[in-house]
């Protein structure tokens, strides 16, 4: 009648700290409530529409303040006027933070190769996942976010220091 038997009944799970933290981070990753152009409408569909329902992945809570968010979904074209604002928002987010470039415009300028549009948001902030499409369908965005989750789950403890 040792302690181990009692504990066994409670169900012990062993894991590494790394995995536990990464699991926690992917399970409640809050995106910033922030949209730029057409892609933002598809982002609303992804998050708001019951057909897609991002809360399945613990991500339905959009935060209007960058200080409370972990993930920046750059949904739409970034103009030269908006780029400094975007960078400031990124700088205000606490670490660890991730960026998803949603849509062709945010990834590479899309069909707008002209004086007004930044040719890819990676000129301004580091991007983790690019989602192609003009606009990407909700399923594509969800796939991009799951790809990001897979990436986060592989992060190593030493890197955090």
């Amino acid at each position: 009648m040792g302690l181990e038997q009692k504990l066994g009944n409670l169900g012990v799970v062993t894991t590494t700290l790394e995995q536990a933290v990464n699991w926690g981070r992917t399970g409640s990753m809050w995106p910033m409530l922030f949209g730029l152009a057409c892609c933002a409408i598809e982002m609303i569909s992804t998050i708001g529409a019951p057909q897609n329902d991002l809360s399945r992945f613990g991500m339905e809570l959009m935060r209007a303040s960058p200080r409370q968010s972990d993930l920046m979904i750059v949904a739409g074209r970034v103009t030269r006027k908006m780029a400094p604002v975007l960078r400031r928002l990124y700088d205000q987010m606490p670490d660890p933070k991730w960026v998803v470039a949603m849509g062709d415009c945010a990834s590479c300028g899309g069909i707008f190769n002209n004086y007004a549009i930044v040719q890819g948001v990676d000129e301004v902030v580091p991007v983790d996942v690019y989602v192609a499409g003009c606009p990407p369908r909700p399923e594509a965005l969800i796939h991009g976010l799951l790809t990001l989750h897979a990436k986060v789950k592989q992060e190593k403890l030493v890197k955090w220091a």
Partner: peptide
């Protein structure tokens, strides 16, 4: 102006059909 995309100018560089997109 935070979303000024230059669409009107860009359309001048495309044919009538292609400017539709």
């Amino acid at each position: 102006g935070y979303l000024h995309t230059g669409i009107e100018k860009n359309m001048e560089a495309k044919t009538f059909t292609k400017a539709l997109v």
